[in-house]
Design a protein around this nucleic acid. Structure first.
Lengths: 254, 254
DNA sequence: CCACGTTCTTGATCTGGATCAATAGCGTAT
DNA sequence: ATACGCTATTGATCCAGATCAAGAACGTGG
């Protein structure tokens, strides 16, 4: 369904070099020779259908996944069966590294839509990491980025009101799409309202109401999964609407 | 300013081998020879007074810190001046690694009481990491642990009621003290109520009330900073008091 | 010693967002 | 088509925990 013509597929075998995502993904910053070595350990193009799991909590950890297309949700489940969404992941992102310390996964990863991923055996990756300095740096880089984004998420849930959380979520999606060459103002949500609510620590109903509210304000148009952002700056204003904030330079009315 | 006095400190110079924390800290799992190499790059025993900063947000990142004694709070500040506490850190913990991706710190670290830390230049550490496989693994280990604890924290703030959060916080402190050879049931809090509230995403008043409440229930005795836990199991029960939980075996009144 | 600032506790009130409830829009299997 | 299940929207009510307010306990410096 992807390359439907008669050409032989081996000739057009994808490599990191022609992946189009390589600047966002693992090979970022690698020299050509090193990229070839990486290429050799990667099992490419595993196809994943919506609802399929890349891995599940408690599975043994031996593979790292790079998303090529589609989107993936990660979540952890708690004793009592409740579920906490920890993130939505777009092409170019690396998944699974947080299991290094436990040797088994502490979260699950499920496709939100048809997706394709590259699989990288972790032990082979660790070898490479040792041999290629910039690769080592990159691994630490990826993990420290994750820590930072978690801190940000933490702060958001702990301190920001519901509307600011949703606004920030939408802006972050918009930015990611923009970075990947898609429209930053018009896109489809691959996740349900439920998943969004869960990620943001809100109830579904609240998310739904907020979408309607944003639409009433003229900030965006929402039709089910389809979003068109009309006023990025307006959304950013919402982001900073924290109760504890003095907001000295706004309107100057007082 | 490094080796200033006349007594010869070298005789009592601490090394990782005799640190007592080495099983919790960076040298964990290293062989003796490798530990010596690590020893050589570590600047030991920087003394930190209460309120002093190890580093501040936006500082250039070039050093990783290992806590030897005392305790340290990490926090990020948001645009508007609000502050989000991201963690309290006890002896044996490694600080600063999350700045790898940005090359500058995205959080600040301040001593909650007099503390001493080891400083490790990151570039030297990265070299070592490349040369000592188990060290490389350990670095990833430490970071993935941090990610997991952040996910846990996220879940807690997003899904658990106030009392469960405080109970979990106390149990986690208790466990950490226990692991370090101190009493798991009697200890002093080095952080203020304000800091606790901030970490847990609550108001100070709520934390204060919960302490009183726990005391009324006979779970613990609290006198300012001094805590004595009387009923660990009871506290654990509180931890699982989530509203979304069916709790079939509770009272059976309906 | 007392004065002043900080941190903590406790009580009274208020509110953002959860929960409950009902309906509407879609998807998809028969 | 029709029926069933799932997801989303919208309204009405409720409550956990925030906010406001007032003391009390402590620390620190004169």
């Amino acid at each position: 369904m992807k390359d439907s013509t008669v050409v032989d597929l081996s000739a057009i075998r994808t490599t990191c070099q022609n992946c189009g995502l390589y600047q966002l993904c693992l090979p970022m910053g690698l020299e050509e020779g090193d990229m070839d070595r990486l290429d050799k350990v990667i099992k490419r193009r595993r196809k994943i259908e919506k609802g399929d799991h890349l891995y599940r909590m408690r599975d043994a950890f031996n593979t790292v996944y790079a998303i090529r297309s589609g989107s993936v949700k990660t979540y952890t489940s708690i004793e009592n069966g409740a579920e906490q969404v920890t993130g939505f992941h777009l092409p170019g992102e690396l998944l699974g590294l947080n299991a290094v310390s436990t040797k088994f996964h502490t979260d699950s990863a499920v496709a939100l839509e048809t997706a394709s991923v590259c699989e990288i055996p972790f032990d082979r990756l660790e070898d490479l990491t040792r041999e290629i300095p910039s690769m080592q740096h990159h691994m630490l880089h990826v993990m420290s980025e994750e820590i930072q984004s978690d801190h940000c998420q933490l702060m958001m849930i702990a301190k920001m009101p519901a509307e600011a959380r949703l606004a920030r979520f939408l802006l972050s999606l918009s930015m990611h799409f923009g970075n990947r060459g898609f429209s930053a103002t018009e896109f489809n949500l691959s996740m349900s309202r439920n998943d969004i609510a869960n990620l943001l620590g809100l109830a579904v109903e609240t998310v739904s109401r907020l979408f309607s509210h944003f639409q009433d304000e003229g900030l965006l148009t929402v039709e089910r999964k389809h979003i068109v952002i009309h006023d990025i700056d307006g959304l950013m204003d919402v982001t900073t609407k924290c109760p504890s904030q003095p907001l000295p330079n706004k309107k100057s009315s007082d």
